[in-house]
Amino acid sequence: MFSYCSDPSTLEGLTWLSCYLTTGKHMLFYVSFGTVLLLLAITAPVSLMFGFAGAMAARARFAPLSWIGKAYIAVVRGVPDIAFFLFFVIALDQGIEWLRHKTLCPEWTDAIRQGNDFLVCPDAKMPLSSSAQWIHEVYGFSLAVITFAIVFGAFAANVLFGAMRAVPRAQMETAEAYGMSHRQAFWRILVPQMWVYALPGLSNLWMVLIKATPLLFLLGVEDIVYWARELGGSKTARFTDYPHPDWRMWYFFALLVFYLSFTKLSEVVLDRIMKRLTHGQATAGGEAQRRANV
């Protein structure tokens, strides 16, 4: 990176470190922090959508739909999330390839599952074996996003389901008295009011989501955990210009600090939002704020 880095073996101390920390691989490591933030930025709204759909399904009046919604919430919460991550990444991949196989190669007669293999016709491979490296990476990342959204959607569905039930019954009765249909009452009365009740659960969920991001590593994405292991392992002078012993401990210590500051920052921001939202509300929190100001 810097001009004096051309011959690392002559460097000492801090200058060595400044060169070491700006190698190409370290740049990829820093970019992977962006991957984590990107995952959070995409996953949070998508899982909120999943959660909303799940909660709506769970309180549907059509019984089978309500069973599906409730089963979705119950099963995802009863099983370790990491098992779901490992499961969905393969299952989604195979499901997509199976669907493409059925539509693209109808004349293919061999069985797809042959012993321990999953064989689809070459046209149905996802992504195609001829496509560029970045397409493979984007595909892997999208699978990870969908997996996260399914798992966290169930958590969010649980929170929103509870929040919908927490809205005072009288509000809905008033809506009915005004002659609103079920749909109108839901969208105009229930949905705008439920967010105050949902926020504590959702902010808790956000913290859990942040702390689940290192699991990206298990889904085969080159994330911060991957690079910390890769860069921290001991390097001999034969393979690199910057030989060093096993430093993985320090790399993971850096990740620990990153996550601690990130959760701390989120906590402060979420506290502010909660204060803003409870302001003037007829809840215990709002009442306490009013008293404090008097």
Binding site: K211, A212, R229, T263
Partner: peptide, 13 residues
């Protein structure tokens, strides 16, 4: 405040 996953890694190393 930190993920258990990272705690395991850090502790192991």
């Amino acid at each position: 405040g930190s993920p258990l996953f990272i705690q395991f890694f850090f502790a192991y190393f």
